[in-house]
């Protein structure tokens, strides 16, 4: 069997085996669904609540993607500003790090109180978490320009704009793509965290809010169903960014 198929079917087989085992344990020991729901209970809950869960997914996805877009635009912009001069980087980088090391969970309640529009507040929280890898990776990428090529551009008297477009941006692309992939995962984490915080105030609609609500009602299968959808979203984001990365960089690897 070709390696490609193995890499798809082998993990799939492990997953199915795991679900069967789980189902079997719940069945034979008669574990009640409110303690540990069997995969079949979760699936049933998923289908019976598909409307609400679908809406919740839509809401979480909106926040995640909006935060990812804002992170990319702002993060790249910040990286470009930082790379202009070592002095700018030295003066501003500590604040970028400060923003990164401050746990956004601690900041989220404040943001949600201050920002009246819930959606905007959620996007701000998720962006605060997701933006750092974009900034740091793009910055590293912009600085990773081949010194020989840089000398070549200088020798040919290339303008600043041409050097940026033809040398710096393409050089930064691999690092940026790696940052994008990390950031897409973090945007989802940020969206979920923000929804939890906002959800305790009762004015949210995402998947985290569904988990909270299901928890209040002791509807454990629905909790699992919402969790399942979050995981699936994360996986989809990972695969999407990974494909984009491969598509953009496929010429640079030896084959």
């Amino acid at each position: 069997m070709p390696a490609r198929l193995i890499s798809i079917f082998a993990p799939l087989a492990v997953g199915i085996l795991f679900l069967l085992l789980w189902q079997g344990i719940c069945y034979f020991w008669h574990i009640p669904p409110y303690l540990m729901p069997a995969p079949s209970d979760i699936a049933r809950s998923l289908f019976s609540n598909i409307d609400t869960l679908g809406h919740a997914l839509y809401s979480t996805l909106t926040v995640t993607l909006a935060a990812l877009c804002v992170s990319v635009v702002l993060g790249v912009l910040v990286a470009f500003v930082l790379v202009q001069h070592p002095l700018i980087e030295r003066s501003l980088m500590p604040y970028v790090v400060l923003m990164q090391v401050t746990p956004v969970v601690a900041l989220a309640p404040l943001i949600i109180i201050l920002v009246k529009t819930t959606l905007l507040a959620l996007v701000i929280c998720a962006t605060l978490i997701a933006i750092f890898p974009i900034i740091s990776n793009t910055l590293q990428g912009l600085k990773s320009v081949d010194p020989g090529l840089e000398a070549f551009f200088r020798m040919h008297k290339a303008s600043r704009l041409k050097t940026l477009l033809r040398l710096q941006i393409p050089s930064a692309l691999p690092m940026f793509m790696a940052g994008l992939q990390i950031s897409s995962g973090l945007a989802l984490v940020g969206a979920v965290v923000a929804e939890f915080v906002a959800g305790t105030g009762g004015n949210s609609a995402g998947l985290a809010y569904e988990i909270l609500q299901a928890g209040f009602q002791m509807d454990i299968p629905r909790m699992f169903a919402a969790l399942f959808m979050i995981t699936l979203t994360g996986l989809a984001l990972y695969m999407a960014t990974s494909s984009i990365r491969k598509l953009v960089l496929h010429n640079r690897v030896e084959h």
């Binding site: 081949d146 090529l149 070549f152 020798m155 393409p170 010429n251």
Partner: peptide, 15 residues
């Protein structure tokens, strides 16, 4: 006109 051939090929891997 002046051209320089470096010790390394220094090509743009993306082009």
């Amino acid at each position: 006109r002046l051209s320089f051939v470096f010790q390394e090929p220094t090509l743009m891997p993306w082009s």
